[in-house]
Amino acid sequence: MMSDPDRARELRVVMKRADAGVFMPLLQEGFIVRCKTGITIEDLLREDFGIARDYMEKRLSTVFLDGQCIDDIDSAIVHGGAVLALSSAMPGLVGATLRRKGILASMRASITHRGQTGQAVSAGEGFVTIKLFNVLAGELGPVFLARGIYVKAAGMKDFLQKRGGPFWSAISRTIFDGRQIDREKLPDALGDEAGALIMLRLAAP
């Protein structure tokens, strides 16, 4: 059971945006964002996160919504609780098959997103899980991290405990609940209450 994101404690990490790729394990695993819902993927990424349409056309080659392949990001609607995964172009026959509007799209017809079924989705605000894969983690990670992402406290603790020198050397300071905290003390400070969330935010030095 996940706790209320509004009760999440904030961990602010002071570092250069260009180094945000060190959070790759968290970004590929998936994180939660508070955002507009009931709108298309394109509108969500453009209006809420400021990602340019041109970038989406060129870089978001492989997109999944709730595990289904997306061909049209301008028609697939993101609902509250959705899982949205973003990837660049992938290798292999299956990589080409899963690609948006690819020539081989019919080969994965049974897992292609066909639009909403059942209840209509109304526009509003909610929480969505985002996964960033491969090169997109480095490119889009800073966008989401700067605004703040929610991750499980236990997962964050595990993540930090496994980091080595290159990770910590990329970070200038860590601030937890408004107070600067030493990296050695950070994992324990996060706690491991089941389902508790941490809001991870990246701040410029």
Binding site: T62, P91, V94, L98, F133
Partner: peptide
């Protein structure tokens, strides 16, 4: 880009997400 950076194993996340 994708192949030089991550090798063919870059497909793991994608296939897993696709449920395939």
């Amino acid at each position: 880009e994708a192949l030089p950076a991550y090798g063919t194993n870059v497909l793991t996340n994608i296939l897993n997400e696709a449920g395939g």
